[in-house]
């Protein structure tokens, strides 16, 4: 059991980060604003979680300008997809073992 616990991915401990990854698994690209709407988080809060995921290498950030407005979009990296899938597998194994 402890073995399983140690395999839980620390990056996904927070619910917000888990939600962000869930969204990016099924949507190729999401803008900052779409994510904010969907997750009902504040700008600062969302930005912090996104930065943490970016630092783990799980999501990639792209900034461009639409007219004069900056638009930031996010996508899951291959490493992020693998890590998320592993995390789900551990969750599943954990529930089966209970």
């Amino acid at each position: 059991m402890n073995d399983l616990l140690s395999r839980f991915n620390k990056a996904f401990e927070s619910k917000a980060r888990l939600n962000i990854m869930s969204v990016l698994m099924v949507n190729d690209v999401m803008s900052f604003n779409d994510l904010k709407d969907l997750l009902a988080l504040t700008d600062g809060n969302l930005a912090t979680h996104l930065r943490a995921l970016e630092e783990s290498g799980y999501i990639a950030v792209e900034k461009q300008f639409v007219g004069r407005k900056p638009k930031t979009t996010y996508r899951a990296t291959e490493a992020g997809r693998t890590a998320f899938t592993d995390h789900l597998n551990v969750l599943e194994a954990f529930i089966r073992n209970m």
């Binding site: 888990l18 099924v26 999401m30 969907l38 969750l91 209970m98």
Partner: peptide
């Protein structure tokens, strides 16, 4: 037991977030 319920809840959260963001 409680922990198991928590994990199930997490899984259903993930599922609903996937649905809600793509449909």
């Amino acid at each position: 037991m409680n922990e198991s319920r928590e994990h199930l809840q997490t899984l259903s959260d993930i599922r609903s977030m996937m649905e809600r963001s793509s449909r």
